[in-house]
């Protein structure tokens, strides 16, 4: 019987404690800077090296390049860049390997949609998703453990 009474006392004491839940949709939740949300893509920085496409464990990035419009310059520029958020697991590997930080993480996490089609994000959408971009990027993973 004592155990039951102790338990009752414990719950009664917690009755008046401060509540811990978030008022989420009313008050937005601030995620820490490193949070891995939906990516932001900067087409101007991309050098079409295909590293992000290759590292992606779920193969959800699709990109194509085209020759540089200015014939005097070498290399390619990005033509299309799509991420399929049906299967993206936000694992952070694409942003980790990108040598130019063309693809970076943001803190935006609201991905819910009524249709699967809306989860297919193209270059324009990703470029427009430019708020709350993560300030730190993963350069500390370069060989030798150089810190940014």
């Amino acid at each position: 019987m004592l155990g039951l009474a102790k338990g009752l006392g414990y719950t009664l004491r917690r009755l008046t404690e401060k509540k811990v839940t978030y008022r989420y949709p009313d008050v937005p939740v601030k995620m820490p800077d490193r949070f891995r949300g939906i990516q932001h893509f900067d087409p101007d920085k991309c050098i079409v090296c295909h590293q992000c496409e290759r590292i992606c464990p779920t193969q959800c990035i699709n990109l194509t390049g085209k020759p540089h419009p200015d014939p005097t310059k070498k290399g390619k520029v990005i033509d299309t860049y799509d991420i399929n958020f049906e299967i993206c697991i936000l694992c952070d590997l694409c942003t980790e390997v990108c040598p130019t930080e063309a693809i970076v993480m943001t803190n935006n996490f609201e991905l819910a949609a009524y249709s699967r089609d809306e989860l297919f994000k193209d270059r324009e959408w990703l470029a427009a998703n430019n708020t709350n971009v993560r300030s730190e990027n993963s350069t500390n993973l370069l060989p030798g453990g150089k810190k940014s």
């Binding site: 917690r14 009755l15 008046t16 404690e17 401060k18 811990v20 839940t21």
Partner: peptide, 10 residues
């Protein structure tokens, strides 16, 4: 409400 309060919810 009461159960919520006890469980630190609203």
């Amino acid at each position: 409400k009461v159960i919520g309060w006890i469980q630190l919810r609203r």
